[in-house]
Design a protein around this nucleic acid. Structure first.
Length: 591
DNA sequence: GCCGTTTTCGGCCCGACTGTTTTCAGTCG
């Protein structure tokens, strides 16, 4: 689909690659500039081409990170469909940069050497050369680097065919909208692991009720995203989408829709348990319905089916075959936190460090999304690359936040709303668990979060002790993204979770459920484990741009997968209650 | 190449880690 974002995405990709090419040439500051511009354009809400049509170069230069040079290249792209500088780079070195750099430990310099010496153009070439032992003899390479590259390739291949939920959900929503507009269609749902909000999904399953199945199949297979049609029938069609993910559409009769939704939502293990119960009650359960001696007993909606089996209906997030069926039988299912229950976002970066937008812009967007408060939590000084704050800069930012708040207050008064910006920080945890900001400044913050950004490879014992030391600081309210994992990219740090959760509960330190779709940290499983110790949580987006504030739902989903209720999540509290809580000493907060 | 709560030119891109190597090169956050 040629949406307005298409141009922005293409430009972002080109500028990102140009930044890598420039890095190969050892250009001093240009790579960063291009990278920054690429990210700004990617996050842009309006179409860059449209901005240019309307306001010309001057309009483009208003984009932060875009100056005269890059604006001119955008102009060139809009006018001619290409950027000559980029094509020159590409001609000199025709390599798959984004593919190669996605392998951990492979950067621009490595790519250059690999191409010059071995003509390696893509991951496949690289894997072949590494397996043949050709890398270790290159200058600056050795046995270990060769092994590391092979491991990196393997690590990535392990995720083959599974797509991060943050990529899959927007695609699915677009297709749902598309299917709903087809004449004859009265209902569309996505089932499968996406409906269960699993962190990655293997394929997209769409279920449709339509009076004209032929029209659905024709339109579906003709979508521009469809790369290949595996099978096409009256009730079921399977395709591969250009994003590298498969999608199925099933057209169903209304009386079977609930049964199909249940069946295709899974999980598989959950369904096996359900079918066992059905058999014990002399039923047969399949995707067409719940049957008693060939007679349809239930199938129109899910609730009916669960009810006939003596179970309460449960949200898809819980269907993991880990005690939910037992709980449903005895009416002990948790009353999960709802997708609209969050009142504030307490981890937000701004352009004071590595965020894309200003404090005001983040506040505006948060307000628009219906939040009551946010906390500004920029990085601190030992994370130097982000321009992290030292004590002085933090204090300066606090003054600015006070000023913005008093401005907001008069605006709030006029619009009869309330919105407040809290002062916070994402304080960097040093190797020994101490912090890079002094206590006398931490105490002045409304919310002090701490996070690990280095020394990911310590032993379980060291890492656990490190985090325990941080949690023992009475000024640290919360640990952000506790395991530090990045999906498909970096493993979580090694921790003794029993000890960590116990300490978190004892010290009154909250743990974050980071909603960023590449983090989801803690994940549902760990939330559920931590909850047993009495740990309290916050769900935050870790937004680095205004658009990122929309990630909240991914975090709420993980909380729900972890059986979290509203009362477990501190930022469901209204501002006043939250501030009362923060005023108490940590250890007295949950008594 | 971009930018200005250090403000229109001179900074920006630091620091740790790993793996190569005997003092450095490349990657990553």
């Amino acid at each position: 689909m040629a949406t307005s974002n298409g141009v922005n995405q293409e430009l972002a990709k080109i500028f990102l690659e140009m930044s890598e090419f420039l890095a190969m040439q050892e250009a001093a500051f240009k790579p960063r500039a291009y990278e920054k511009a690429a990210r700004a354009i990617e996050e842009l809400k309006e179409d860059a081409a449209e901005i240019y049509q309307k306001e010309g170069l001057k309009g483009l230069e208003k984009i932060s990170g875009v100056g005269k040079g890059i604006a001119r290249r955008i102009e060139e792209f809009v006018k001619t469909g290409r950027i000559r500088d980029y094509e020159r780079f590409k001609k000199e070195m025709p390599v798959d940069i984004s593919g190669l750099t996605s392998i951990q430990g492979v950067g621009p310099k490595t790519i250059k050497t690999l191409y010059k010496k071995l003509k390696i153009k893509n991951v496949k070439d690289l894997e072949k050369a590494a397996k043949a032992g050709k890398l270790k003899n290159l200058p600056g390479f050795g046995e270990k680097i060769e092994q590391k590259i092979l491991q990196g390739i393997e690590f990535q291949a392990g995720f083959h065919g599974r797509m991060n939920i943050g990529l899959a959900l927007p695609i699915a929503r677009k297709i749902i909208d598309f299917l709903k507009k087809i004449p004859g269609v009265s209902r569309v749902e996505v089932a499968g692991s996406l409906r269960r909000w699993q962190e990655s999904v293997g394929d997209l399953d769409f279920l449709v009720i339509s009076s004209k199945s032929e029209a659905v199949m024709t339109k579906f297979t003709a979508m521009p995203e469809v790369e290949h049609v595996y099978a096409r029938g009256q009730t079921k069609t399977m395709v591969r989408l250009s994003g590298g993910i498969d999608a199925d559409v099933r057209v169903l009769p209304p009386e079977s829709f609930g049964a199909a939704l249940q069946y295709f939502t899974g999980s598989k293990d959950h369904n096996v348990e359900l079918r066992k119960i059905a058999i014990s009650k002399k039923y047969k359960l399949n995707e067409y319905g719940l049957f008693k001696s060939r007679k349809l007993a239930a199938g129109r909606d899910e609730k009916e089916i669960y009810s006939k089996l003596g179970l309460d209906w449960m949200p898809p997030e819980l269907r993991t075959a880990s005690g939910e069926i037992e709980a449903a039988r005895f009416h002990r299912l948790p009353d999960l936190i709802g997708y609209g229950d969050i009142k504030g976002d307490l981890q937000i970066q701004t352009n004071w460090t590595d965020g894309a937008n200003s404090i005001e812009e983040m506040a505006q967007e948060a307000k628009r999304l219906g939040l009551e408060y946010i906390a500004i939590t920029d990085h601190t000084k030992s994370l130097a690359i982000t321009g992290g704050s030292d004590e002085k800069k933090l204090l300066r930012q606090m003054v600015i936040i006070d000023k913005i708040n008093s401005k907001l207050q008069s605006a709030n008064w006029r619009t009869n709303s309330k919105f407040k910006i809290l002062k916070g920080a994402e304080v960097n945890i040093l190797k020994d668990g101490s912090l890079d900001i002094k206590d006398e400044v931490l105490v002045k913050l409304d919310v002090a979060g701490a996070a690990i950004h280095s020394h990911f490879n310590l032993s379980e014992k060291e890492q656990t002790e490190r985090l325990i030391k941080t949690m023992s600081n009475r000024h640290i309210d919360i640990i952000f993204h506790p395991t530090g994992r990045l999906l498909q990219k970096r493993e979580p740090i090694k921790l003794d979770f029993d000890k960590v959760f116990k300490t978190a509960a004892e010290t009154g330190t909250m743990l974050e459920i980071n909603a960023h779709p590449w983090r989801l940290d803690l994940n549902g499983e760990l939330v559920r484990a931590a909850k047993k110790y009495g740990v309290r949580f916050m769900i935050n987006t870790d937004a680095h741009s205004a658009a990122d504030l929309a990630y909240m739902e991914y975090g709420i989903a993980q909380a729900r997968r972890g059986w979290a209720e509203k009362s477990d999540i501190v930022n469901t509290l209204p501002l006043k209650k939250l501030m009362e809580l923060f005023k108490k000493p940590k250890t007295g907060r949950y008594l």
